[in-house]
């Protein structure tokens, strides 16, 4: 027979050890929380990637196969489009900044007025409206069979979105060029016979603005995700007759617009009134909730990353 007092003592001793371990673990977490504040950019990047990985693993085990594959495809497509938007925006932004700068330098005022007019016109059209109109063209091309390759459609989507985002890059580059032009080194380099092209592209943009450009790239990426999801959602909900006939590639926005996903999201409010229902959210309503989570979580993390880079630049 075992001695109950001895058994109780053992449990108490084990609890002490466990408590010690837990306390030690919490101390490390405290340290990590502080470290996260100091290295905010890296921390948010790690947090974002880990969050997405955890969600992927959860979905891998608990989401049905077809939905899991569609979700993966939608995520890859959305990410691909957003990355391409960054590339296209930077190419267009750089091109326009160079054009503006050299028109200004050569005192070609008529050209400058036209360029500014075009840029202001794009700026004055609400982004979503511009993108929606360009999507209408895209659906017409698809209907006519001018384009049929899914990847080409995604590339065109990115190009069309970038037309309404690249202005942010133009503004940043023009601001950087103007800032350095006010400093002595710009004139000193010109006196030394170095071409303006090299000063701007190598010394100003490449050597002194990379961090700013990186920050802008993350911002553009987030804007692209937001706008793309919104326009795909609107197209799938509002223009459903045309879309069913045309079939655009699946993205996070269009996946969210599906009736199943919408029902899944609606389960959140049901859970608020029936708290006991919440475990179902993790198993029965995974498709819609996963898509919504990916979009919102990505937007939060990307915002935090840009914010922390901006804070670092301010220092």
């Amino acid at each position: 027979m075992t001695n109950p007092e001895k058994g109780f003592g053992q449990i108490k001793q084990r609890w002490q050890v466990l408590r010690h371990w837990l306390a030690e673990g919490l101390r490390k977490l405290q340290h990590l929380a502080l470290l996260g504040r100091v290295h905010a950019t890296e921390s948010w990047l790690v947090f974002w990637l880990s969050g997405l990985t955890l969600l992927w693993l959860w979905d891998f085990f608990f989401l049905n196969r077809p939905a899991f594959h569609t979700l993966n495809q939608a995520f890859v497509n959305s990410l691909f489009v957003a990355l391409l938007v960054v590339v296209f925006s930077f190419v267009q932004g750089w091109g326009w900044s160079m054009l503006l700068h050299f028109l200004e330098e050569s005192e070609h005022f008529k050209g400058l007025t036209v360029a500014h007019f075009v840029l202001n016109l794009i700026r004055s059209i609400p982004q979503i409206v511009g993108i929606l109109f360009s999507y209408v063209w895209l659906t017409i091309w698809l209907e006519k069979g001018i384009i049929s390759n899914q990847w080409l459609v995604l590339i065109l989507m990115a190009l069309l979105i970038s037309v309404f985002i690249f202005l942010e890059v133009v503004d940043l580059l023009s601001e950087r060029i103007r800032f350095f032009q006010r400093l002595d080194f710009y004139n000193a380099m010109r006196v030394c016979g170095i071409s303006t092209w090299r000063i701007i592209n190598y010394d100003i943009i490449w050597k002194n603005s990379l961090q700013h450009l990186l920050n802008k790239a993350v911002g553009v990426f987030a804007s692209a995700i937001f706008l793309q999801c919104s326009v795909d959602f609107i197209i799938s909900v509002g223009l459903s007759i045309r879309v069913s006939a045309v079939n655009l590639p699946v993205t996070l926005g269009s996946l969210l617009a599906q009736i199943d996903s919408k029902q899944d999201i609606l389960a959140i409010s049901y859970t608020l009134s029936h708290p006991g229902y919440w475990p179902n959210l993790l198993f029965r309503h995974l498709q819609g909730l996963s898509v919504a989570f990916v979009i919102v979580f990505t937007l939060i993390c990307l915002f935090k990353i840009t914010n922390s880079i901006a804070e670092r630049l301010e220092k």
Binding site: F226, C229, S230, K262, I265, L266, A292, I295
Partner: peptide, 9 residues
């Protein structure tokens, strides 16, 4: 969150 996520929830 995009407005439609909040609204449809």
């Amino acid at each position: 969150a995009p407005a439609y996520v909040v609204a449809y929830s």
